[in-house]
């Protein structure tokens, strides 16, 4: 019995060595903020030779060559980076460019940008295999699941004593029109997971007049702004849209600022942290999340 186990172990080891020798892709191009973050989290940062314009985090990625926007990729530009593999979502394109890249010997690996755990599981498994780091991918996935579960448990607990707050998520690019996050967005998923009730009733991100925002009367506003952070972003938002100060969120000072790069390319590694931050803001009087969750 022990012998068979040993043999099996050896077999697994050997096959892993074999796949490693089968030349895992060494030069990576990533098109998608969350995908790049996962590649980095799985220890693949040194293999990245190019990233798209949404890969803004960690900041060390800024020093890599930029391949532009994921839907307007340039075939020859990417080939010039001599990549073995290009990872991105199915929004990546244009299709003829992907064909040209395939002809140039670049492996195209499609990951899912859907905000759900199944998509994340698929993405992490794929990335783990391709980076030769399945064990860590599994660990990260288990940890992620666990955090989402305890997050959900905490929210359930908090909702026994408090009503779910009405939340409006606003997105603004460098002072332009405010866009409200609607259904089918990662933002809505996050609000929901953090125990809030998302007020955006439309699909995707849409501009909404401040008067309509006033009528929605959110209790909490989440703001994903351009380059400003924290208090500066909050102040800028209220200064440019003074009406917002008249909403309940504005009166109570419940404006939460999050990093807009969190919202691109599906569930990224930083989402659980952002979720506990959001739910703490949604239920300020509830018991703080345990140290284990907050970490």
């Amino acid at each position: 019995m022990r012998m068979t186990t040993l043999l099996a172990c050896a077999g697994v080891l050997l096959s892993q060595l074999a796949t490693a020798a089968d030349a895992l892709p060494q030069r990576w191009v990533s098109a998608g903020g969350a995908f790049s973050e996962w590649v980095v989290a799985l220890g693949g940062e040194s293999k990245l030779v190019g990233v798209d314009s949404t890969s803004q985090y960690p900041r060390s990625l800024h020093s890599l060559p930029g391949i532009g926007y994921q839907r307007a990729l340039a075939a020859e530009g990417i080939l010039a980076l001599r990549p073995d593999i290009l990872v991105g979502s199915n929004e990546m394109g244009a299709p003829p460019v992907l064909e040209q890249l395939k002809a140039g010997g670049v492996r195209i690996e499609l990951l899912s940008a859907k905000p759900d755990v199944q998509a994340l599981e698929h993405n992490l498994t794929q990335l783990g295999q391709l980076l030769g780091n399945q064990a860590q991918a599994q660990t990260l996935l288990d940890g992620y699941r666990q955090r989402l579960q305890s997050q959900a448990a905490w929210v359930k607990q908090a909702q026994q004593h408090h009503q779910a707050p009405r939340v409006l998520m606003l997105l603004s690019h460098s002072g332009g029109n405010l866009q409200v996050a609607g259904k089918d967005t990662l933002a809505a998923w996050m609000i929901n997971q953090a125990g809030g009730q998302s007020l955006g009733d439309h699909n995707g991100y849409k501009p909404v007049s401040v008067e309509a925002m006033l009528a929605l009367d959110p209790e909490v506003i989440i703001f994903a702004g351009g380059r400003l952070e924290g208090d500066a972003a909050r102040a800028a938002l209220l200064q440019q849209n003074p009406i917002l100060a008249q909403t309940r969120a504005g009166r109570d000072g419940r404006v939460v600022v999050i990093d807009p790069t969190l919202l691109v390319g599906g569930l990224g590694p930083r989402v659980p942290d952002a979720l506990s931050m959001l739910s703490t803001a949604f239920y300020p009087s509830a018991q703080a999340q345990t140290a284990e969750i907050k970490r």
Partner: peptide, 17 residues
């Protein structure tokens, strides 16, 4: 964004087809 890029034109991804 696809629409915006299309409005600015590009020869990118040209194929004989």
């Amino acid at each position: 964004r696809t629409l915006t890029f299309w409005n600015l034109g590009s020869l990118n991804g040209a194929s004989y087809q």
